[in-house]
């Protein structure tokens, strides 16, 4: 589904991402971990064609994301609040996003109740603009907007940060469910090792722009990761 080759990005002489080879198969759930500055967000941005790589390419469905726009049809992502149109109400935003994927307002409205638990009554029909929501609630809007797009690829950058524990668990279940039911490819970055090992089948550990570990999740993975991070500190 996604292929990366010779991907490199430097800022002021410092290499922030350097990935010679990476293949992500359809339906995989990938967890991206690594300390701050390891290059997770930069990698995401290059996969979404927001940053031009110094060299190399990202292929989505065999097509270079920088050249073709077709990946936008099946890729949903939420990296930060810069993805939200903050002067819209959440409903307006969902309608807009739904509209881009040829869903009518009524269709979108009929899908929203499914998020009732996830939203915990704080998003819909509050009459607030997105800019007036808390950061956690903004994350919820961003994640829900991803789900509305019925994606085949889902990319979330630190979705567990800023949201409350019960929503974290709901989000985890939501991601698990859709990746199982709809067989979608999911890439999630997180600092929460528990969550990430719980949701993801495959963990990529980044350090200074490189993927230094590529592990299929098993019962020992959490321990292995904890060990890596504690040694570093």
């Amino acid at each position: 589904m996604i292929g990366i080759s010779n991907l490199k990005k430097q800022y002021n002489g410092v290499t922030v991402v350097n990935i010679p080879e990476l293949t992500i198969k359809r339906g995989e759930t990938i967890g991206l971990v690594g300390n701050n500055g390891a290059g997770k967000t930069t990698l995401f941005r290059m996969m979404l064609d927001l940053i031009r790589p110094d060299s190399g390419e990202v292929l989505s469905d065999e097509k270079n994301v920088a050249e073709s726009e077709s990946w936008k049809d099946y890729t949903a992502s939420y990296l930060d609040e810069g993805f939200l149109i903050d002067y819209l109400t959440p409903e307006e935003y969902f309608h807009f996003i739904g509209g881009l994927h040829n869903k009518s307002k009524v269709q979108v409205d009929s899908e929203l109740p499914a998020f009732a638990d996830f939203f915990n009554g704080e998003i819909l029909k509050k009459g607030k603009y997105i800019r007036d929501l808390s950061k956690g609630n903004q994350t919820k809007v961003g994640v829900a907007a991803c789900m509305i797009q019925n994606p085949q690829i889902l990319m979330l950058d630190e979705p567990f940060a800023n949201i409350d524990p019960s929503t974290q668990i709901r989000l985890k279940n939501m991601v698990k469910d859709i990746s199982k039911e709809k067989h979608i490819t999911t890439i999630i970055s997180s600092h929460d090792l528990n969550h990430v090992t719980d949701v993801c089948e495959r963990i990529l550990l980044m350090e200074k722009g490189k993927i230094i570990k590529d592990i299929a999740t098993n019962s020992n993975t959490l321990q292995e990761l904890e060990q890596y991070f504690s040694v570093l500190s």
Binding site: L48, F83, I85, D86, I97, L100
Partner: peptide, 14 residues
Amino acid sequence: SAHFDGILVSKVSA
């Protein structure tokens, strides 16, 4: 500018 990234990744053609 505040949501330009969002426009770029969404299904809005240039």
